[in-house]
Design a protein around this nucleic acid. Structure first.
Lengths: 132, 132
DNA sequence: AGAAAAGTTGACGTGCGCGTAAGCGTAACG
DNA sequence: CGTTACGCTTACGCGCACGTCAACTTTTCT
């Protein structure tokens, strides 16, 4: 709890994941905890990445998708050529997310409409008697 | 192509899925094609449901989640008690989707910001010479 | 009629995202 | 100083969402 380094358990409690999950993410090169002897210590950077991972999952991205996305967040530590490519990928991803955002809006409107219709139906049916 | 019924191949071409997928969805009670002899014929209703299934998947919902969601779209064919419950579930789902919508917006803004920063870095580095 | 095309039912295989023991090291506590 | 707790690795298992044969019936075309 040096405020800089967190043990695996502290991470689990903080983000509601299991140790297995964190080790799994490390094996997939999504996280890079440092080692104090044998034990893992997760840095602030790992915490930031984990937040992005969990968010990505909620949007339906695969871990491999997310791994690539994560690179977009330390743009600057790279060679120029690689960076150009990374930015291109990032822009594509951004477009995808915008489409998804729009589609979600449509879905919300549709479901909202269905609910309204349902409520009306219910009101009218309920006015007299429910299946008397 | 009676415009009402579609064969499995027509469905596959129309929605870019495999026969296996459609049969799988039927086995999971997400679709209910009628049978003409042995063959499946998909109705307009199946097509509407398939669209919702594919959309749900893009949002990261499981097929089981989606199966439950689909019921929300034929509200009205139910008993009153069941309908009340369905509406309640629908409202919860709607809230969840609104949260996701909001979170996606945040993510979009963040990634957008990262890209801008990256572009700046690239511009400055590119002005002189790339890693000379 | 005969062959190719399309569809059907099993049933096993596969990649992803972890769960779940098994067995071992170590460090912290009473 | 033993034991309890936490952590590590290795490895097999599992549920989901299909992919991929295999073997067979049914149309459809010529």
């Amino acid at each position: 709890m040096t405020d800089e380094m967190m043990t695996i358990r502290e991470m689990c409690d903080a983000y509601e994941v299991t140790p297995r999950t964190l080790r799994f993410y490390e094996s997939k090169e999504l996280l890079f905890p440092v080692r104090k002897g044998q034990k893992r210590l997760f840095t602030r950077r790992d915490r930031a990445r984990l937040k992005l991972i969990l968010r990505g999952k909620r949007f339906g991205f695969s871990l491999e998708d997310i791994r690539q996305l994560l690179d977009l967040y330390h743009i600057g530590d790279q060679q120029r050529t690689q960076m150009v490519r990374t930015l291109a990928v990032a822009r594509e991803r951004l477009e995808e997310m915008r489409r998804q955002h729009q589609e979600l809006e449509t879905a919300i409107e549709e479901l909202s409409q269905q609910i309204s219709t349902g409520e009306e139906t219910l009101a009218k049916a309920g006015a007299s008697q429910p299946k008397a």
